[in-house]
């Protein structure tokens, strides 16, 4: 398998685009025609559906190189997007090992890892990186282990310490987030950082989710999909930069909604780390323009019904109330009222 990496941007001229293959493998998040929160966990790992974003443990796609370039731009202007409290360094090494090992095993033509005891040799061909270093010796890497590896892995990463029957947001690399801030959340526990989410607390969702996460064993990662809507293919929709992307919500018109309105899907996965007992929480972001999404008839029908029938407070929380009517009207033309098949995948 060869991947052709797109030359594209996630800001300014927004030249981000999905190839037909990328559209086909997009992780459409709705398995039925309506949506409400649930603890929708399922096992993650090797052996996911062939060709889908679930096939490999850390999916690498045509956006890889451009996304890493975008991360570097964000970090240069705001270094606090990457933070690791002092006790999390061991977890950073665990994460580095996990990602290097998975990438080298799942994409041997792109990544290689040679280990000779604690002397490691890492080759990242798409980014042109070759690094020899001593595992667990931070002086042998150009930056901390978590920062080093997450500058080479798509998606955001939260690294959660586990203690007092709770999870603590004690480290992370967050540059492609749906309007939350690592700098604000750093050091918070599971309930504190979820406090802004409407409805879910009364539903007991967080208690149940936390119980599940605390008991995630090694070797049995889990995943779930989450979603929101974003105007323009922008990775950095952070509170810090709201002044840059918030006003763009007002640029949507019935004429441009198909091109400028994106469905944003997060593939969230959960991994127990061996040496630190921390929980790695990668949040991988996928973006698709509505005009590309509607090329899959099942998705067009279903997204129309979900957006149309969504409770108001969820649309408000996800930040697209202002454009909800335009989006619903646009999608309505692709919904002929026919039933949709179960599951998230496109019909063959």
């Amino acid at each position: 398998m060869t991947i052709r990496f797109n030359d594209e941007t996630f800001r300014d001229d927004y030249s981000y685009h999905n190839s037909p293959e990328a559209i086909r493998r997009f992780p459409f998040p709705f398995d039925k025609d309506d949506y409400m929160y649930s603890v929708n966990m399922e096992p993650h790992g090797t052996g996911g559906r062939a060709g889908s974003v679930f096939e490999k443990r850390f999916d690498v796609d045509e956006h890889y190189v451009a996304e890493m370039r975008d991360r570097a731009i964000t970090l240069a202007s705001d270094p606090l997007r990457c933070q690791s409290l002092p006790h999390m360094e061991l977890a950073g090494w665990d994460l580095l090992e996990l990602i290097m090992q998975c990438k080298a095993e799942d994409y041997p033509e792109l990544f290689q890892l040679h280990r000779d005891g604690d002397r490691w040799h890492w080759v990242n061909r798409p980014l042109g990186i070759e690094q020899r270093f001593t595992f667990l010796d931070p002086t042998t890497l150009p930056c901390g282990p978590m920062e080093y590896i997450t500058r080479q892995a798509q998606g955001d990463f939260a690294v959660l310490d586990q203690r007092e029957n709770n999870l603590w947001m004690d480290a992370g690399m967050v540059t492609s987030q749906a309007d939350w801030s690592l700098d604000f959340d750093i050091g918070m526990n599971f309930f504190e950082w979820h406090a802004p989410v409407p409805k879910a607390a009364e539903m007991g969702i967080f208690q149940r989710a936390l119980k599940f996460l605390l008991a995630i064993p090694q070797g049995s990662p889990s995943r779930r999909l989450n979603w929101t809507m974003t105007v323009n293919p922008r990775l950095d929709t952070s509170p810090e930069n709201y002044h840059l992307w918030g006003p763009e919500k007002r640029t949507i018109t019935p004429e441009n909604v198909g091109a400028k309105q994106y469905l944003r899907v997060e593939l969230q996965s959960f991994w127990r780390l061996p040496r630190s007992n921390a929980l790695a929480f990668p949040i991988r972001c996928y973006l698709i323009a509505l005009q590309d999404l509607v090329t899959v008839p099942k998705w067009a029908r279903r997204l129309h019904r979900v957006i149309r029938d969504l409770p108001d407070e969820l649309a408000e929380y996800k930040g697209f109330t202002v454009n909800r009517q335009i989006i619903t009207d646009y999608l309505a033309q692709f919904d002929d009222g026919k039933p949709t098949s179960p599951g998230i995948f496109a019909d063959d």
Binding site: L85, H87, D161, R163, A215, P217, Q218, R272, N277
Partner: peptide, 13 residues
């Protein structure tokens, strides 16, 4: 034998 699980980890802080 199951893979290891830790419910009694050190608080590294």
């Amino acid at each position: 034998v199951s893979l290891p699980l830790n419910l009694f980890a050190l608080d590294l802080r």
